[in-house]
Design a binder for these strands. Structure first.
Ligand SMILES: [Mn+2]
Ligand SMILES: [Mn+2]
Ligand SMILES: [Zn+2]
Ligand SMILES: [Zn+2]
Lengths: 150, 150
DNA sequence: TGCTATGTAGGAATCATTCCTGTCTAGTGG
DNA sequence: CCACTAGACAGGAATGATTCCTACATAGCA
């Protein structure tokens, strides 16, 4: 959904992030999609309105947004970094075929704990769950509807 | 624990992996540790016994072992790839301070499911849970024992 | 024991990300 | 409203893990 420039500016100020055209454009591109774009995706998107935009600014800005808590990095497998403007606690479902990443909002998953015996003295701060499988468009041919049940 | 060369050869043959000194050495180094080493770690370890070993062979072999189901890649954050000779289904606990990765074997975590409403037509094959926090050696100074409870 | 598909060593190439440097400007205080 | 300065920007160079390429070696098999 389209994000009001005023709202973007308000969020930046609330998080002590300096307001610039480039940042607003990058954040808008990130926050208005649920596709978990790469830095390069954002660069291409934003370059349409800002032809002078450099990749460096995209990377730098993503770092700033991340530190400010306005964005997070999502890592799937060892592919290029993908970014998420949704900073609510949530998890992901990844298609092994086309690489798309879908949000999974599920309170149950947010409650996962680890037994203290397994915690090995760690102070655990959080966790991340990543489901993988094939999306409807990528189901391998040999996979029948029956196999898909459950 | 030390792994018998005979056992290594047996596993290779069972998984239709050609037996070479280099592979046996790489697999031994990987399977005898629980530290989830990087390719570079394995290269350095194995190079002591095999001075001619090339990095390429390490990468190539890790690919072969992975396809054969004798190793898996573990990705934490966007750091360099780490490898795991433990192919049983299990999860990980990552220290945000020193980067160490500890195995978490917990049947409960292996049972996680996703509601069909959230599955969005995906055929889900598996999932991965990654806990993060600070290990005993890396607990931030400001963190008291009280905070650590729970 | 020889053949052939595969593996290996070493070096070049790739490419996402980071680093560097010289402008430029948002925010601020006078 | 103006000037100052910390921080942001563009563009290009550097980095570094991983992959690619190629000529030589060897495991597995008849
Ligand atoms: Mn998300
Ligand atoms: Mn493990
Ligand atoms: Zn797909
Ligand atoms: Zn630690």
């Amino acid at each position: 959904m389209k994000l009001d420039p005023q709202e973007i500016e308000a969020r930046f100020r609330r998080h002590a992030v300096r307001v610039t055209r480039q940042r607003a454009a990058i954040y808008a591109a990130l926050a208005e999609t649920t596709s978990h774009p790469t830095a390069e995706d954002l660069y291409r998107t934003v370059k349409r309105q800002h032809p002078m935009m450099s990749r460096n600014t995209v990377y730098y800005t993503l770092g700033v947004l991340r530190q400010a808590g306005l964005a997070q990095e999502v890592n799937v497998g060892h592919e290029v970094a993908r970014f998420d403007g949704n900073v609510a606690v949530h998890h992901h479902l990844v298609c092994l075929g086309c690489g798309q990443i879908v949000d999974v909002m599920d309170d149950g998953l947010n409650q996962l704990a680890i037994s203290s015996r397994q915690a090995r003295g760690f102070h655990v701060l959080g966790h991340r769950v990543e489901f993988h499988g094939y999306c409807a468009d990528c189901q391998p041919a040999g996979l029948s509807a029956m196999d898909r049940r459950g």
